[in-house]
Design a protein around this nucleic acid. Structure first.
Lengths: 352, 352
DNA sequence: CTGTTAGCGCTTTCAT
DNA sequence: ATGAAAGCGCTAACAG
């Protein structure tokens, strides 16, 4: 029926062990023998049985990538970069790694379940991308899961996620400097002369949301613009265009004298811009808008969006190398990835 | 060391077979016994060994999704929709399916290698998304690979890809009506009064590119606007913003009297719009622009982009159901997914 | 409804 | 450098 190692061995007139050694290339085999085996493999169109290898070797070539939303380029770019670096498809029969992108949809249960699934598959590595949920119970559950994975030999890499406390399960952490990015963005607005700035924040319980907002508040606190009504000028919502649209209308209702709006990310900023336009407000003449991430489409907004650039591709690529052991973890296991302010047309001095 | 089924069996005082039956839930087990087993599983923190199950059962719960570019929302949306429908993470221990998103980056070799990897993992199903390469050699190689996969019991679903000729390996094909979408879009432009229309096409060898372009030409041929110089008014390039930008500059050079530009997709249209703006042309007053796909950001372009809406989410979800056998294949195995013209602000009558 | 018995296809010491 | 043999941890008949 289906071709097995034994069939190949028979045809090449060698033992199954030899075929295995040729395919895995991790053992000396005479060149002539290797040739013969390889030909038999081709003749028979043989494909290694992954589950059987994984069972016998107690390891697998699967690498899991957890993302919150695969339809969001923020995650797509990182996931693609990870995959590009894991030395997957390229060579011949043996040794290929396969990256598995798992879409949690932001659900804590799914995150946990995917980790279990990955554990079940004896994944070689797991990369967790993007902001984490701040719920302590969930954080503890994730830590526990990661600890078991690490015990089983799985490498754990966090990419764009804050370091985990009290655990040595994580091989390496690449964390974005969301706080300082947020601070610099708001400082830019303050320098332009803005004093009443609305903030469309992300979902309440996410680290990314909190850090960006904290940066924003830090900048305000250090300036003369903090009138103690910051909570009123902040609206939370999911990282979606729609949320940006609605939150902006709400902000306008609460404070019609706003001269600038900072959004949780670029997608939200797009929604905010649409709401402003629908209200008849011109950007940046009547009101400034800023985003975060610098996704590819942000430069094409009209006017081009002022935002904070996160090197998503670079971070993902490095995470991929860390996950495969191709790169040494940074000292202390944690590296902070800088964020760069991109000033473009959507922000300008307020005109009173 | 690591907990096995036998450990659970011992602790629950049943045979390994019973534990297996409880975990897989596909066999009658007394409620009391089940309880005992489940408690033992929890006590021991047992996780099934995926490779071992797959080996013994000769099947796996892996489902592969091949995409050309995971950073492109076109694919991200479809992949997310597939995953949402495969009945993955949700329930308890057994029976979870895991979707594996494989990023080919548009490379034929990687496409083939990923298919081999999926075959090696004994994937339960494979969903191939997006346009196919037209190279006959590669098409034959893919067909051959799919045939072996199908032989091994893997379900094959094409989503947003034209049907494969001469093969019964494919379980179901969901194909987008790119040709008629392209035709209707250009008809819309012709109706507005445009006669000189530039076309920024996708990469030469892709089915998607060809079908959309054919639709465009069909519409022109049926009108008075075809002056036999269509080739001059067409520029090919990858599905990127940059390509749209550069191709548009080239078109403007070749034919400064253009009153409209149709792009291969929305991303390219964004690049085209940027080029037009940089040239000082107003959209749609001086020149109209249209895209294809109706990705989420397209409505936020300024002016909002006229485009052709492809129901990516619906198609992906259906592909997911077909891949898991939750839905019957359409009669003949092929269903054509309609495309809907979305007329928005970026197109208007030309002003001479 | 539950236990017994064989493998699934491969890797890997241990010999030779 | 190659072969023989013993599992890896689980599922699936087949009994009972």
């Amino acid at each position: 029926m289906t071709v097995t190692l034994a069939d190949v061995a028979a045809r090449a007139q060698v033992s199954p062990a030899t075929v295995s050694r040729v395919l895995n290339g991790n053992y000396p085999v005479a060149a002539a023998t290797r040739e013969r085996v390889l030909r038999a493999v081709d003749d028979l169109d043989y494909v290694l049985n992954g589950p059987a290898s994984s069972l016998a070797a107690a390891t697998s070539d699967l690498l899991g990538i957890l993302v919150n939303d695969i339809a969001d380029p923020f995650f797509g770019i990182m996931a693609g970069a990870v995959q590009s670096e894991i030395g997957g498809p390229g060579g011949r029969a043996g040794g290929e790694r396969m990256a598995v992108v798992c879409n949690t949809g932001g659900s804590p249960e799914r995150e946990l379940t995917y980790l279990t699934l990955l554990q079940r598959q004896r994944a070689a590595a797991v990369v967790l991308t993007g902001g984490a949920l701040e719920d302590p119970a969930h954080a503890a559950a994730v830590s526990a899961k990661l600890a078991r994975l690490a015990d089983a030999g799985t490498r754990i890499v966090l990419c764009g996620r804050p370091p985990l406390a009290d655990t040595d399960a994580v091989t390496a952490t690449l964390t974005f400097d969301n706080r300082s990015g947020g601070r610099r963005l708001t400082e830019h607005l303050l320098t332009l002369g803005h004093r009443r700035i609305g903030y469309v924040a992300g979902p309440m319980e996410r680290t990314t949301t909190r850090h960006r907002l904290e940066g924003h508040r830090e900048a305000l606190a250090a300036s003369a613009a903090d009138h103690g009504d910051q909570d009123e000028l902040t609206v939370h919502g999911p990282y979606t265009r729609r949320s940006g649209y609605e939150a902006t209308l709400e902000l306008l209702r609460r404070a019609p004298d706003l001269t600038a709006i900072v959004a949780a990310n670029d997608t939200v900023a797009l929604g905010a811009s649409a709401a402003l336009r629908d209200r008849g407000l011109r950007i940046p003449e009547d009101i400034s808008v800023a985003g975060f991430d610098d996704l590819p489409f942000s430069i094409d907004a009209v006017p081009a969006l002022t935002t904070v650039r996160l090197p998503l591709h670079e971070a993902g690529a490095r995470a991929g190398r860390l996950a495969t052991g191709a790169e040494e973890p940074p000292p202390g296991g944690v590296a902070t990835i800088g964020a760069e302010l991109m000033v473009r047309g959507s922000t300008a001095p307020p005109c009173h």
